[in-house]
Computed example of a mutant assay.
Amino acid sequence: MCFASVTASAYTEDDSSASDPTAPLSWTAPKQVKTEKKKTYYPVPKLTSIVCLGGVECSVILNDRLVEQGDWVSGYQVQKIDNEYVVLVRQGKRWVLELFDSTIKQ
Rank of each mutant, 00 (worst) to 15 (best):
F100R: 14
V60P: 02
I81P: 00
Y41L: 06
S102C: 11
E84V: 02
V86D: 01
N63D: 13
L99M: 14
R65S: 07
I50P: 03
L25Q: 13
L62F: 09
Q79C: 03
V87N: 06
T22M: 05
I50W: 08
S9M: 01
V6W: 07
W95E: 13
R90L: 02
P21C: 04
D64I: 01
K105C: 04
K105N: 05
K34D: 11
G92T: 02
A4R: 08
V33L: 07
Q79K: 12
G70L: 07
P45K: 14
S19D: 11
Q106R: 15
Q32P: 00
D15K: 04
D14A: 05
V56T: 09
L88P: 04
K38P: 10
L25S: 14
L88M: 11
T103M: 11
L53Q: 05
T22N: 14
L66S: 10
W72T: 06
S26K: 15
S74I: 00
Y11S: 07
K80W: 02
Y11Q: 03
T40M: 09
F3Q: 12
V78W: 04
V44A: 10
Y85K: 11
L88T: 05
E84S: 12
S59F: 04
Q91G: 00
K46Q: 13
K31Q: 12
A18K: 06
E36L: 15
D14S: 06
T35G: 01
T12D: 06
S26F: 15
D20T: 09
M1K: 03
T48V: 08
W95N: 04
G54V: 02
S19G: 09
G55K: 13
G70F: 04
V67I: 07
R90N: 09
L88N: 08
